[in-house]
Design a protein around this nucleic acid. Structure first.
Lengths: 343, 343
DNA sequence: ATGTGTCACGCAATCGTTTGCGAAAATTCC
DNA sequence: GGAATTTTCGCAAACGATTGCGTGACACAT
């Protein structure tokens, strides 16, 4: 039945040395402080008995659990799994495990989950679901818990963050539309309490100025959530306003998908009558018609980078050596949802 | 800076009682063995100091970590996130956290991950990535670790499993095709080393007999992986064989998507010339044209159920009280990828 | 032979809880 | 009011690892 676990004590008894010697012999860095002969004898005994270290006990003593917390809004949102794989790809080989939690973008749920993670003694947190101002996580970070944020950033804090080059992406996309002859370009902006939503709106405004495209506030409509339904609603509003536009630059793919759907409902063809663009290049996009022109972000790389920065923090790297800001390059992917402007 | 954590000892000193008394006062079930006045005084002190229990220390002593391991092939596969949310929805409110690992369907990686989870002292494992014969997990289970498998099952073992009613799904789908007048129905089977692949092929065979549809072995082609590429390859093989068919029943959605793509490449229209069906009803399917007729499985419910069964195991429910087999009902969703057979 | 230094290992405390046991205190019973 | 019983709480030993410190052994130089 439930076999008793092998402990250091068992190995010590078996080899006739003290448990502390066993501990050192099995620790790759301490091992050199032990006679090679003894060390290998201990190693052999450990292997023979099938010893597996008890991480819980070690964690209690060292105060390191080799566990990190990963907070995301919702794992069923397809842009997150690749990020998680990226994180895992750097952390897992080093012996870290991650506890993934979904905040559902709810403030109280989020702050409760931060506590859950801290209770479990995570060595650090990668937070891909922060709000623009987020006292819970800011407090945790200021109390010394290593934290990095991903995709978003919390304002006025010393928390390192990894984001995509929203500016460049939006700017290139706007340039693409302009080159296709579009002049009346609408923007379906994302929720303004999320830094992505806010950054992309600002980027849109800046890009317009830089590209000498007229910025038309009346052609900007703001979504409350990053989903298809709200994308559709925004297009409804746009249409209801009666203003003319030949292209819609959306703050993410899901809004764009909803937008295209709503246009289709109204008998407006994308891209012949109205061009639509997205952001993120989420998986499965190539399977959906019309294939969406969008900005590709490097999700996997983002995950890797976040993990790497967190590692530096956890290894006590002095603050000035760890990059506060990492901006990942993006690229625009032109597919079928954009076309020459109709005049 | 890094504030020292409040421990039971701190509260004991503050309230002038022994640490064991504090422990009892803070434990909802032991609390009644303490004078109410003392208990509430302790509670108040704990709140005032902002006490947070150290789960690591508790875990060392009790040998329960309130953590479960969840093994899946690949989180970027869209059918898994909903399952995870299901699991989380029952486990998280009870104070459990889950460590999710991706096996990538690699045997050695999988067995290494089982060890990783055991080293971390998980209280149980939900395994949604087992192979048909899987000694690693079988051994873990037989050594007393609570394990349940999801979507798949390991043969010749006492491990409880939760699966979908593959039989009913395939049968209904075949009936649907037959009712549309199809007689020459191909089957793109899944990998036969996975129980889903194997079960669905068997189901196809049985359903044919039950519905008096002729079973044609030469119209069955087996995929090596559950992905679009192999779905396309299977259709290539089918086409290359020169045999006539008017419908393809695929073992899952991704195979079906690949199949439709390949047909399109060859200038064969789905559904006008060939009907294609899937299995799983994964998210985003409604956005892809032609909208796929498929079998909807209850991913969220499956996750919930797996978690519930695992809980029973972990709570030491006697084996005969926990269901060995749970078969979840499925329903077929008729969309646009199936049509009347062309003759 | 003594002193100095290094090396290899043992000793014991420690991390923060939980829990069986026993003793003191409070309560009940006759 | 004393015995019997129950309640309430303290004591101390775990859980399994890590690690600072100390000590004996041995080598080497003097």
């Amino acid at each position: 039945m439930r076999q008793k676990r092998i402990t250091l004590k068992d190995i010590a008894r078996e080899t006739g040395v003290h448990v502390s010697t066993v501990s050192r012999a099995l620790d790759p860095v301490e091992r050199k402080s032990i006679t090679e002969e003894v060390a290998s004898r201990i190693q052999a005994a450990a292997d023979a008995l099938g010893y597996r270290p008890n991480r819980i006990a070690a964690g209690l003593r060292t105060n390191r659990t080799m566990t990190v917390g990963v907070m995301i809004p919702d794992i069923t949102n397809v842009i997150f799994p690749p990020i998680l794989r990226g994180i895992e790809s750097v952390l897992e080989p080093l012996g870290y495990a991650s506890i993934i939690v979904n905040t559902d973008s709810e403030r109280d749920r989020e702050s409760r989950l931060v506590d859950v993670l801290r209770d479990r003694g995570v060595d650090g947190i990668i937070h891909a679901a922060v709000l623009r101002s987020d006292p819970t996580i800011a407090r945790a970070a200021s109390e010394g818990l290593p934290v990095v944020t991903l995709n978003r950033m919390v304002e006025n804090s010393q928390i390192p963050y990894i984001i995509n080059d929203e500016d460049a992406g939006i700017c290139e996309m706007l340039g693409h539309l302009r080159d296709l002859g579009h002049r009346d370009i609408a923007h379906v902006a994302g929720p303004q309490d999320l830094s992505t939503g806010q950054l992309r709106l600002a980027a849109f405004r800046n890009a317009a100025k830089r590209l000498s495209v007229e910025f038309r506030p009346e052609l900007v409509v703001t979504a409350r959530r990053f989903d298809e339904k709200d994308g559709a609603r925004c297009v409804q509003d746009l249409l209801a306003s009666g203003r003319k536009f030949t292209a819609i630059l959306c703050a993410n793919d899901r809004l764009a998908l909803g937008a295209i759907d709503e246009l289709r409902e109204r008998g407006i063809d994308c891209p012949r009558q109205v061009s639509v663009t997205g952001f993120n290049d989420m998986p499965f996009l190539e399977l959906i018609r019309p294939r969406l022109t969008t900005v590709r972000i490097q999700s996997h790389v983002a995950g890797c980078t976040a993990a790497t920065v967190l590692l530096q923090l956890m290894n006590g790297e002095s603050a000035e050596n760890v990059p506060m800001e990492t901006i990942l390059p993006v690229e625009i992917i032109v597919r079928e949802s954009t076309a020459q402007a109709a005049h």
